[in-house]
Amino acid sequence: MADTTYIGAINDALASAMRRDPAVRIVGEDVAEGGPFGATKGLAAEFGERVRDTPISESSIMGIGAGMALAGLRPVVEIMFIDFITLALDQLANQAAKARYMSGGQLRCPLVVRTSVGAGTRSGAQHSQSLEAWLLHVPGLSVVMPATAADAGGLLLSALRADDPVVVVENKELYFRKEPRVDLAPVPIGAAAVRRPGRDVTCVATSRTVHEALAAADELARDGTEVEVIDPRTLHPLDLDTIVGSVRRTHRCVVAHEAVRQGGFGAEVAALVQEHAFDALDAPVARLGAPYAPVPVSPPLEDAYLVRAPAIAAAVRSLVA
């Protein structure tokens, strides 16, 4: 079967959702041209003004998307880099996320936001951040973080059927990663995937780091250590049962992500695991993430910044030692 890419799956999902549901709209910078990575390629030709190019006005773009959603449309707002979501957080956190609650349930805001995280491209401290943990602190937002092409398309399809705002946090390092094509199908929000079963250590990893964890697991398997790699896929609502169920079998847990370790999603997972499976743990939960530093441009520094397979393997080894 032909290969597909993460960005190709996003493009397919957008096109199929737009064909199925006339309420779907796309709003963002350069989306009519296809965007810098090609996510919206060809959509303006097929769907005309349903694909709306905007000026560089992130805070209002987010609010316009929310306003469309409050009035019954299903907009997909594209914020090219999560670094620029900083500009749009007011409308996202204060309006979109709270509209349902503050209205006593009268309103629904089915807004989908697509954005990208990811270092490793030498693009510097304002184009490489992983800020997904900020979004988890705002009740009312679902946050999904696909690691594969099938999930990038499938989670987007589910987001476009949800009642409430969903932020799809993509990873630009994964955009052009090839994968065997699978039929595009919705991937449920709130369901983790066990990427590799294992009996010795549970490794919870997100986004690009899933692939690093799998590489580490391959290497560790050669020494006889079996790592179970869990990809939560959705950060909120979190599939805690899958994670806790695994830790109850393995008794050890490592959490790994690309975002800065301090205040990251890993802290939440570590806290939840100790709340729900303290008695099962043979060792403290290990957390891997970026150092407390902005993302540097210099190649050796950026390479050292990222959590790669060897660091995950080392953390696992120290847990089983």
């Binding site: 030498r122 693009s123 510097g124 401290a125 304002q126 184009h127 540097p296 441009v297 210099s298 520094l301």
Partner: peptide
């Protein structure tokens, strides 16, 4: 010091 790059 190589940390900022072209845009910074």
């Amino acid at each position: 010091g190589g940390k900022g790059g072209s845009m910074h």
